[in-house]
Nucleic acid binder design. Structure first.
Length: 748
DNA sequence: GTCATAGTAATTTTT
DNA sequence: TTACTATGAC
């Protein structure tokens, strides 16, 4: 056992991962195996033992939370600030690159970032301006199309539609949308990544610079990377930098968002000198819980393979409860939590997880009824609130009059007599002259193209924005925002809202001012830190190559606006109160709780209807289930309802296949009168493997005499009753009685 | 410009 | 069922 301080308290696999000197390292880290710890310790190791400067490290994560945590922990470990180290999210780092080299990236210095809300507005406008029917060509769908293509690295000209009307139209919308963004100097989230990639790809000078600078690139949650992120990582690390990726193929749950689980396989192929280290010892859960998780995930194909184990106790059995309906499910949970808390524990140790947000209401009601405190994750975040976005829209116009998204948002907020008609006139002018809305508005005013009232409204608006700028020329950021809130009339408008709402909005606006004040200070501290670090590093290539360092001259307002888009803030406050935690399975990833309730374990709900028809969707649902199970430390409850109201209709769902994939020996069924017994559901349906009755396997390709080829999705029952669900290429999913189905396996 | 009503669609979410 | 959008009446 190595006793180096950095390696203390790490197990052997963790130590190997920290000290590995292969040029490319893949760490397959199971749930609860100390993934972040390894990453942080490896960075500390590289700095203190391998002599790398913090300047030469690049660490990438997906969420701001993870990035902050990583930076904090590495600074703790090193005992000093690591300002010069690039630690951030893909989007944050891409943004940083684009700010530093805006010109080379073909962007305006003052470009701003669109969040998905703003993006949708622009897409909507584009669709309308193209004269397309919004019902036939839904903006939401177009937005999705554009993002998906960008995530895949495709520009409109790269897309081949082969006469396909859908693709052709969508591509055309994409193209028009791009133009609109360019005109307004706006960049959406996917664009940040794509643009940053293209910047390095097309600019050899910059590429070489960054490849030389970053001697070691580390990526967290690698299973969540999309195509363009992978390519960006490859490009920036070049052929000479070392690379460490950490991930877990079994926890890939964002395939629907463009994440490519195959990137892990690709990495192994493309870096043929790579080494793979598995972290399989789990420090979180009881062995019962781990066995259940392992059994479920074993039903997936194409895994890299990994078996979690623990040296800990077997712990309590998993409780399975069949509720009458969703209300009863909720009441049961509430009463169990009550019992748990009465034994001297805290609410915050309990988490209720569900597949879709719609399920949360009934759960909330049950908790409310008992007066139990709870907190829901997800929902509107601070910078997404209407009042905040309105205020920031004014700020964006101060920084850049050509920001059409901001213009549209507040040109008539608060109302100043500009209805749809008037705005339509402005839009027309803008489109016909290929100018921005602000420029078009000026033209409308000058040439008197609108009735007096509307014309006055436009003039007032333009003067208002101009005044805001001149009045606050020398002011600090928070003073500017304070001024905008007042002068725009937004405060007055919101205070008129009835009930508590107006007051809450006012508080949020005040909160925005304090956020701006803190941002001023942070920004100042960060800059000085950075300079100090850079100055102390003579080997830095920045000076001699004439490349700008970072954030050299970003105006505070532009910096703050970017910050607001990139870090939407916490979803809900009051996080210090002891409360039950409610969230979707997706948002539970990365968290852990002593007691976990997995709700709605029913076919069509979990696995969800929309993911049931193909084997990939099903595999992702199963991974989601794996994530859910592995959140639990001590006690896991599985719940399903026999009757559930779904969209106003009563349904009688059957128990989720995932429950049946857990060995029955790990489960005890909770009966209504609180007695406990062994599981009762059909002895044979509780199968401990993915083996079908006749040796067929889930995901296997089979041939049916009538329906042709299809993939096996599920088995139900056994004996003469046994049925099998297959997704046929010709007719889609079908459930057949196995005994009559005359299936033949098909060799791949 | 605001309010009421009808119609529609309905995972998962971060940046 | 609900929640959101679009439309039409005042």
């Amino acid at each position: 056992m190595n006793t180096h301080p950095i390696l203390q308290f790490l197990n052997e696999a963790q130590q190997n991962a920290v000290t590995c000197d292969a040029p490319a390292l893949l760490v397959l880290a199971g749930a609860g195996s100390g993934k972040t710890r390894v990453l942080v310790h490896r960075m500390a190791w590289l700095i203190s033992e391998c002599g790398l400067s913090p300047h030469a490290l690049l660490a990438v994560t997906f969420t701001n939370k993870a990035a902050h945590e990583m930076r904090g922990r590495i600074e703790d470990l090193l005992g000093r600030p690591a300002g010069a180290m690039w630690v951030g999210t893909f989007h944050g780092l891409a943004h940083r690159l684009l700010r530093a080299h805006a010109r080379d990236a073909g962007l305006d210095e003052n470009f701003q970032i669109l969040d998905s809300d703003d993006q949708l507005r622009i897409v909507k406008r584009v669709v309308r301006e193209m004269g397309l029917d919004e019902n036939e060509w839904q903006p939401k769908q177009a937005q999705w199309f554009i993002s998906a293509r960008k995530d895949d690295g495709q520009r409109p000209q790269d897309i081949k539609h082969n006469g396909d009307l859908f693709t052709a139209t969508m591509t055309s919308i994409y193209s028009h949308y791009e133009q609109a963004c360019r005109q307004s100097s706006l960049v959406d989230f996917a664009e940040l990544l794509l643009r940053a990639y293209e910047l390095l790809r097309d600019n050899e000078h910059l590429r070489t610079h960054y490849q030389n600078r970053f001697r070691h690139v580390l990526v967290d949650e690698f299973q969540d990377t999309n195509a363009i992120q992978y390519r960006w990582i490859k490009l920036i690390s070049g052929n000479t930098s070392a690379i460490t990726i950490v991930g877990d193929d079994d926890q890939s749950i964002y395939g629907w968002r463009g994440a490519k689980i195959e990137n892990i396989h690709r990495f192994q192929q493309e870096y043929n000198d790579s080494e793979t280290i598995r972290l399989e010892q789990n420090y979180r859960s009881t062995s019962t819980i781990l066995q259940a998780a392992n059994a479920v995930i074993a039903n997936n194909n194409d895994r890299l393979g990994k078996n979690l184990w623990t040296s800990g106790d077997q712990g309590e059995p998993i409780s399975l409860y069949a509720a009458f309906n969703e209300q009863e499910e909720a009441r049961f949970i509430a009463s169990r939590i009550q019992d748990y808390v009465n034994q001297g524990n805290n609410y915050r140790e309990c988490a209720i997880l569900y597949r879709s947000n719609a399920q949360s209401r009934v759960l909330e009601e049950a908790l409310l009824q008992r007066g139990m405190p709870y907190r829901i994750y997800g929902g509107l975040r601070f910078f997404e609130r209407a009042e905040i976005k309105d205020t920031l829209a004014y700020c964006r116009l101060i920084a850049n009059r050509d920001d059409d998204a901001a213009f549209e948002r507040v040109v008539n907020t608060p109302t100043r007599g500009l209805g749809q008609k008037s705005i339509e006139v402005v839009r027309d002018i803008a489109r016909n002259h290929k100018i921005t809305l602000w420029q078009a508005a000026s033209k409308v005013v000058e040439e008197n193209l609108l009735p007096a009232r509307a014309r006055n409204g436009l003039m007032t608006f333009q003067e208002l924005v101009a005044n805001m700028e001149s009045e606050t020329g020398e002011a600090d950021l928070h003073e500017l925002i304070d001024f905008v809130i007042e002068a725009s009339g937004l405060l007055e408008m919101y205070l008129k809202e009835k009930g508590e709402k107006g007051l809450a909005r006012k508080e949020n606006l005040q909160e925005l001012v304090s956020a701006a004040r803190e941002f001023d200070i942070d920004q100042y501290l960060y800059d000085t830190e950075l300079e100090a670090e850079e100055a102390g590093l003579p080997e830095s290539a920045d000076g001699e190559s004439g490349l700008p360092v970072m954030e050299d001259e970003m105006p505070p307002l532009v910096a703050f606006l970017s910050h607001a888009s990139l870090e939407a803030g916490e979803a809900q406050a009051e996080k210090y109160e002891d409360s039950v935690q409610l969230m979707t399975l997706h948002s539970a990833k990365g968290l852990e709780f002593p007691v976990v309730f997995l709700t709605g374990l029913e076919e069509k709900l979990f696995p969800h209807q929309m993911s049931m028809d193909d084997i990939d969707g099903l595999a992702e649902e199963r991974r989601l289930c794996y994530v859910g199970i592995t959140r639990a430390m001590k006690k896991l409850y599985l719940l399903h309802a026999e009757k559930r109201r779904l969209w106003g209709k009563e349904t009688y769902p059957s128990i989720s296949r995932f429950v049946r994939e857990i060995p029955s020996s790990l489960i005890e069924e909770v009966r209504l009168n609180a007695q406990v017994s062994q599981p009762m559901f059909g002895t044979s349906s509780l199968m401990d493997s993915d083996q079908g009755p006749e040796g067929f396997q889930l995901g296997q390709m089979v041939e049916h005499p009538k329906f042709g080829h299809g993939v096996i999705l599920n088995f139900e029952g056994s004996g003469p009753q046994a049925r099998i669900q297959i997704n046929f290429e010709s007719v889609g999913p079908k459930t057949l009685v196995l005994a009559y189905a005359k299936l033949e396996p098909v060799m791949a």
